[in-house]
Design a protein around this nucleic acid. Structure first.
Lengths: 131, 131
DNA sequence: CCTTGCTCCTGAAGCCGCTACAGAAGCTAG
DNA sequence: CTAGCTTCTGTAGCGGCTTCAGGAGCAAGG
């Protein structure tokens, strides 16, 4: 039975201590056992859970998404439900990519328009200012 | 000398009233004149300033960026400085696009791996769970 | 045994850029 | 005069942490 301090746990899962305590506060991680001195002691299953959470966060899932992924996983849910959730999430990501690409094009147009004169009549400022 | 209520001002610039009051609170917009009844009265220059702010926000500039763009513009700054700031901003946007594309690819790989079985051994869950 | 210095504790506040709400008061058209 | 729209102030909330203040536990070296 491997035991972890909060520091080892967070290092293992790629988080930091405050984040782990935050997850505990919002009920995403269970309150662990404590030493006589009051320090948190985690076991392997906490470590796996935290790693799951951090990986899902790394994939851009929200805390709420993760809560239900964990619920789904635990409740022997259908893979179909998880799949659906992932697809919707990917759609959101793609929408965001398109928004940012539009932004990039707009900014690029403005930047290319700029002649870099030493005066304040900059293409960017003008774009933002004119009627 | 055109005058605006807060409602007309925000409609003109594409904001809403709360946002305008918020900008005033954080010092991005000056406190305007008031009617006898205590309502805000704006003039054309406030309207142009707000429009500038909203356009810059629309291009993804942060409030702090905008503060200095406004400072730069007002202080007869070089176009070069503005240009530089815009390019850095675009770099950030491009980095974010790349991050999201990586995410998309990772998610797509997982989704395609999923056989949509009615069991809990889903590719996504497995990916997040395994060592 | 005692110090040094790392790790950890709690609770609250801060970040960004708004948005939402409550409860009151001004204003305008009919 | 009244109905109903707009505006007022102040506060709290969103997500997902991070940071801070002010302490206490704990392991290793002297």
């Amino acid at each position: 039975m491997t035991e972890f301090t909060i520091g080892r746990l967070s290092a293992f899962a790629g988080a930091n201590n405050e984040t782990v305590r935050f997850y505990e506060k919002i009920g995403l991680m269970a309150s662990p056992a404590r030493t006589a001195g009051g320090r948190r002691v985690y076991d392997g299953s906490a470590a796996r859970r935290l790693r799951f959470i951090r990986r899902a966060r790394g994939l851009g899932f929200s805390i709420d998404d993760i809560r239900s992924l964990l619920g789904l996983g635990g409740a022997a849910a259908t893979c179909e439900a998880v799949h659906e959730r992932a697809r919707r999430h990917r759609d959101d990501i793609r929408a965001k990519i398109n928004d940012l690409k539009r932004l990039d094009r707009r900014l690029t147009a403005i930047i290319d328009n700029c002649r870099r004169t030493p005066t304040p009549d900059c293409a960017l400022i003008e774009t933002l200012t004119r009627d």
